[in-house]
Protein backbone atom coordinates (compact mmCIF):
# COMPACT_ATOMS: atom_id res chain seq x y z
CA UNK A 1 0.00 0.00 0.00
CA UNK A 2 2.65 2.45 1.11
CA UNK A 3 5.00 1.25 -1.56
CA UNK A 4 2.32 1.64 -4.23
CA UNK A 5 1.81 5.22 -3.12
CA UNK A 6 5.48 6.06 -3.36
CA UNK A 7 5.87 4.34 -6.71
CA UNK A 8 2.93 6.23 -8.15
CA UNK A 9 4.16 9.65 -7.11
CA UNK A 10 7.73 9.11 -8.08
CA UNK A 11 6.45 7.90 -11.45
CA UNK A 12 4.28 11.00 -11.66
CA UNK A 13 7.15 13.39 -10.98
CA UNK A 14 9.33 11.57 -13.42
CA UNK A 15 6.66 11.86 -16.10
CA UNK A 16 6.11 15.51 -15.28
CA UNK A 17 9.78 16.31 -15.71
CA UNK A 18 10.51 14.12 -18.69
CA UNK A 19 7.52 15.40 -20.65
CA UNK A 20 8.13 19.06 -19.94
CA UNK A 21 9.19 19.99 -23.46
CA UNK A 22 6.16 18.54 -25.22
CA UNK A 23 3.83 19.90 -22.57
CA UNK A 24 5.51 23.26 -22.80
CA UNK A 25 4.67 23.26 -26.49
CA UNK A 26 1.10 22.19 -25.80
CA UNK A 27 0.85 24.90 -23.13
CA UNK A 28 1.78 27.44 -25.77
CA UNK A 29 -1.12 26.24 -27.88
CA UNK A 30 -3.42 26.53 -24.86
CA UNK A 31 -2.13 30.01 -24.13
CA UNK A 32 -2.44 31.11 -27.74
CA UNK A 33 -5.97 29.75 -27.90
CA UNK A 34 -6.88 31.57 -24.69
CA UNK A 35 -5.19 34.83 -25.65
CA UNK A 36 -6.71 34.97 -29.12
CA UNK A 37 -10.21 34.04 -27.98
CA UNK A 38 -10.19 36.40 -24.99
CA UNK A 39 -8.82 39.24 -27.10
CA UNK A 40 -11.63 38.86 -29.63
CA UNK A 41 -14.14 38.28 -26.83
CA UNK A 42 -13.24 41.64 -25.27
CA UNK A 43 -14.35 43.44 -28.44
CA UNK A 44 -17.45 41.30 -28.82
CA UNK A 45 -18.24 41.88 -25.15
CA UNK A 46 -17.77 45.63 -25.36
CA UNK A 47 -19.89 45.79 -28.51
CA UNK A 48 -22.82 43.90 -26.98
CA UNK A 49 -22.49 45.77 -23.67
CA UNK A 50 -22.90 49.03 -25.60
CA UNK A 51 -25.93 47.59 -27.40
CA UNK A 52 -27.44 46.64 -24.06
CA UNK A 53 -27.10 50.13 -22.62
CA UNK A 54 -28.00 51.89 -25.88
CA UNK A 55 -31.62 52.51 -24.84
CA UNK A 56 -32.59 51.42 -28.35
CA UNK A 57 -34.97 48.52 -27.93
CA UNK A 58 -34.11 46.46 -31.04
CA UNK A 59 -30.41 46.71 -30.22
CA UNK A 60 -31.07 45.60 -26.66
CA UNK A 61 -33.07 42.63 -27.99
CA UNK A 62 -30.20 41.58 -30.21
CA UNK A 63 -27.78 41.71 -27.29
CA UNK A 64 -30.18 39.84 -25.02
CA UNK A 65 -30.77 37.14 -27.62
CA UNK A 66 -27.04 36.63 -28.05
CA UNK A 67 -26.43 36.37 -24.32
CA UNK A 68 -29.44 34.09 -23.91
CA UNK A 69 -28.19 31.66 -26.56
CA UNK A 70 -24.67 31.54 -25.18
CA UNK A 71 -25.85 31.01 -21.63
CA UNK A 72 -28.50 28.53 -22.59
CA UNK A 73 -26.41 26.07 -24.59
CA UNK A 74 -23.41 23.93 -23.64
CA UNK A 75 -20.04 25.29 -24.61
CA UNK A 76 -19.07 22.02 -26.25
CA UNK A 77 -22.11 22.33 -28.54
CA UNK A 78 -21.12 25.90 -29.44
CA UNK A 79 -17.60 24.78 -30.24
CA UNK A 80 -18.78 21.95 -32.46
CA UNK A 81 -21.27 24.20 -34.23
CA UNK A 82 -18.46 26.66 -34.92
CA UNK A 83 -16.15 23.87 -36.02
CA UNK A 84 -18.55 22.18 -38.43
CA UNK A 85 -20.16 25.42 -39.48
CA UNK A 86 -16.99 27.32 -40.18
CA UNK A 87 -14.93 24.53 -41.67
CA UNK A 88 -17.73 23.76 -44.11
CA UNK A 89 -17.80 27.26 -45.58
CA UNK A 90 -14.26 28.40 -45.06
CA UNK A 91 -10.74 27.04 -45.13
CA UNK A 92 -10.17 27.44 -41.45
CA UNK A 93 -8.09 25.40 -39.06
CA UNK A 94 -9.44 23.60 -36.04
CA UNK A 95 -7.47 26.03 -33.89
CA UNK A 96 -9.18 29.08 -35.37
CA UNK A 97 -12.66 27.62 -35.32
CA UNK A 98 -12.28 26.80 -31.62
CA UNK A 99 -10.75 30.22 -30.99
CA UNK A 100 -13.76 31.88 -32.58
CA UNK A 101 -16.15 29.54 -30.76
CA UNK A 102 -14.55 30.40 -27.42
CA UNK A 103 -14.57 34.10 -28.31
CA UNK A 104 -18.28 33.89 -29.13
CA UNK A 105 -18.88 32.16 -25.80
CA UNK A 106 -16.75 34.40 -23.57
CA UNK A 107 -18.02 37.51 -25.34
CA UNK A 108 -21.44 37.05 -23.79
CA UNK A 109 -20.10 36.83 -20.26
CA UNK A 110 -17.74 39.71 -20.86
CA UNK A 111 -20.64 41.76 -22.25
CA UNK A 112 -22.42 41.34 -18.93
CA UNK A 113 -19.27 42.23 -17.01
CA UNK A 114 -18.79 45.41 -19.06
CA UNK A 115 -22.46 46.36 -18.87
CA UNK A 116 -22.37 46.08 -15.09
CA UNK A 117 -19.17 48.06 -14.72
CA UNK A 118 -20.30 50.80 -17.12
CA UNK A 119 -23.57 51.16 -15.25
CA UNK A 120 -21.72 51.30 -11.95
CA UNK A 121 -20.04 54.57 -12.96
CA UNK A 122 -22.11 57.37 -11.50
CA UNK A 123 -24.34 59.56 -13.63
CA UNK A 124 -22.35 62.56 -12.43
CA UNK A 125 -19.39 61.51 -14.57
CA UNK A 126 -21.46 61.56 -17.74
CA UNK A 127 -22.99 64.87 -16.75
CA UNK A 128 -19.60 66.40 -16.06
CA UNK A 129 -18.38 65.30 -19.48
CA UNK A 130 -21.47 66.50 -21.29
CA UNK A 131 -21.50 69.81 -19.41
CA UNK A 132 -18.01 70.47 -20.79
CA UNK A 133 -19.31 70.06 -24.32
CA UNK A 134 -18.10 66.52 -24.90
CA UNK A 135 -20.24 64.41 -27.19
CA UNK A 136 -21.78 61.22 -25.92
CA UNK A 137 -19.13 59.23 -27.81
CA UNK A 138 -16.21 61.18 -26.38
CA UNK A 139 -17.66 61.01 -22.89
CA UNK A 140 -18.01 57.25 -23.20
CA UNK A 141 -14.56 56.74 -24.63
CA UNK A 142 -12.57 59.14 -22.48
CA UNK A 143 -14.47 59.28 -19.20
CA UNK A 144 -16.71 56.26 -18.67
CA UNK A 145 -14.92 53.34 -20.33
CA UNK A 146 -11.51 53.84 -18.69
CA UNK A 147 -13.15 53.82 -15.27
CA UNK A 148 -15.49 50.97 -16.18
CA UNK A 149 -12.63 48.89 -17.50
CA UNK A 150 -10.78 49.27 -14.24
CA UNK A 151 -13.78 48.15 -12.28
CA UNK A 152 -14.27 45.25 -14.66
CA UNK A 153 -10.77 43.89 -14.17
CA UNK A 154 -11.39 41.55 -11.22
CA UNK A 155 -14.40 39.82 -12.83
CA UNK A 156 -12.59 39.90 -16.19
CA UNK A 157 -9.61 38.14 -14.63
CA UNK A 158 -12.00 35.52 -13.37
CA UNK A 159 -13.48 35.13 -16.84
CA UNK A 160 -10.00 34.83 -18.35
CA UNK A 161 -9.28 31.92 -16.02
CA UNK A 162 -12.54 30.25 -17.00
CA UNK A 163 -11.65 30.82 -20.65
CA UNK A 164 -8.22 29.29 -20.15
CA UNK A 165 -9.68 26.14 -18.63
CA UNK A 166 -12.49 25.94 -21.19
CA UNK A 167 -9.93 25.94 -23.98
CA UNK A 168 -9.30 22.31 -23.03
CA UNK A 169 -12.45 21.46 -25.00
CA UNK A 170 -10.40 22.13 -28.14
CA UNK A 171 -9.01 18.64 -27.58
CA UNK A 172 -12.30 17.24 -28.87
CA UNK A 173 -11.66 18.59 -32.33
CA UNK A 174 -8.06 17.62 -32.45
CA UNK A 175 -6.19 20.73 -31.39
CA UNK A 176 -2.95 19.61 -29.73
CA UNK A 177 -3.20 21.55 -26.50
CA UNK A 178 -2.50 20.37 -22.96
CA UNK A 179 -5.56 18.22 -22.38
CA UNK A 180 -5.31 16.56 -25.80
CA UNK A 181 -1.69 15.70 -25.14
CA UNK A 182 -2.50 14.29 -21.71
CA UNK A 183 -5.26 12.02 -22.98
CA UNK A 184 -3.11 10.79 -25.84
CA UNK A 185 -0.34 9.96 -23.42
CA UNK A 186 -2.81 8.32 -21.06
CA UNK A 187 -4.19 6.11 -23.84
CA UNK A 188 -0.72 5.12 -25.02
CA UNK A 189 0.59 4.23 -21.55
CA UNK A 190 -2.66 2.95 -20.00
CA UNK A 191 -1.82 5.35 -17.17
CA UNK A 192 -4.49 8.03 -17.40
CA UNK A 193 -4.16 9.14 -13.80
CA UNK A 194 -0.52 10.16 -14.07
CA UNK A 195 -1.07 12.15 -17.25
CA UNK A 196 -4.26 13.82 -16.08
CA UNK A 197 -2.38 15.02 -13.01
CA UNK A 198 0.49 16.27 -15.17
CA UNK A 199 -2.10 18.12 -17.22
CA UNK A 200 -3.63 19.58 -14.04
CA UNK A 201 -0.25 20.87 -12.89
CA UNK A 202 0.24 22.66 -16.19
CA UNK A 203 -3.16 24.33 -15.92
CA UNK A 204 -2.35 25.40 -12.37
CA UNK A 205 0.88 26.98 -13.57
CA UNK A 206 -0.90 28.84 -16.37
CA UNK A 207 -3.66 30.05 -14.05
CA UNK A 208 -1.03 31.20 -11.60
CA UNK A 209 0.72 33.24 -14.29
CA UNK A 210 -2.56 34.68 -15.55
CA UNK A 211 -3.59 35.70 -12.04
CA UNK A 212 -0.24 37.38 -11.58
CA UNK A 213 -0.58 39.34 -14.82
CA UNK A 214 -4.12 40.49 -14.01
CA UNK A 215 -2.91 41.52 -10.56
CA UNK A 216 -0.10 43.57 -12.07
CA UNK A 217 -2.46 45.34 -14.45
CA UNK A 218 -4.84 46.06 -11.58
CA UNK A 219 -2.02 47.54 -9.56
CA UNK A 220 -0.89 49.67 -12.45
CA UNK A 221 -4.38 51.04 -12.98
CA UNK A 222 -4.83 51.72 -9.28
CA UNK A 223 -2.42 54.66 -9.23
CA UNK A 224 -5.28 57.14 -9.04
CA UNK A 225 -6.72 55.70 -5.81
Amino acid sequence: MYLGFVTFWSGFFQSLIESRDVFFKAAQVTLALTAVSIFIALFIGLFFALLKISNVKPLEWIANAYIYVVRGTPLIVQIFVFFYGLTSIWMISGFWSVALGLAFHNGAYIAEIFRGSIQSIGKGQTEAGRSLGMSQMVTMRRIILPQAFRRALPPLGNQFIIGLKDSSLAAFIGVQEIFALATTRGANTFDYMTWLLVCAVWYLILVFILTLVVGLVEKKLAVSD
Binding site: G124, Q125, E127, A128, S131, L132, G133, M134, Q147, S224
Partner: peptide, 22 residues
Protein backbone atom coordinates in the same frame (compact mmCIF):
# COMPACT_ATOMS: atom_id res chain seq x y z
CA UNK B 1 -26.04 71.27 -27.81
CA UNK B 2 -22.39 70.31 -27.41
CA UNK B 3 -21.55 73.71 -28.83
CA UNK B 4 -24.02 75.41 -26.49
CA UNK B 5 -22.64 73.57 -23.47
CA UNK B 6 -19.13 74.73 -24.30
CA UNK B 7 -20.32 78.26 -23.61
CA UNK B 8 -22.05 77.34 -20.36
CA UNK B 9 -19.78 76.04 -17.63
CA UNK B 10 -21.23 74.01 -14.79
CA UNK B 11 -20.01 73.25 -11.29
CA UNK B 12 -21.75 70.46 -9.39
CA UNK B 13 -22.43 69.94 -5.73
CA UNK B 14 -20.44 66.70 -5.73
CA UNK B 15 -17.58 68.00 -7.93
CA UNK B 16 -17.77 65.10 -10.39
CA UNK B 17 -14.06 65.25 -11.09
CA UNK B 18 -12.71 62.47 -13.30
CA UNK B 19 -11.06 60.19 -10.74
CA UNK B 20 -8.86 58.39 -13.26
CA UNK B 21 -7.21 61.63 -14.37
CA UNK B 22 -4.82 63.91 -12.56
Amino acid sequence: LNGVRQQVGMVFQHFNLFPHKT
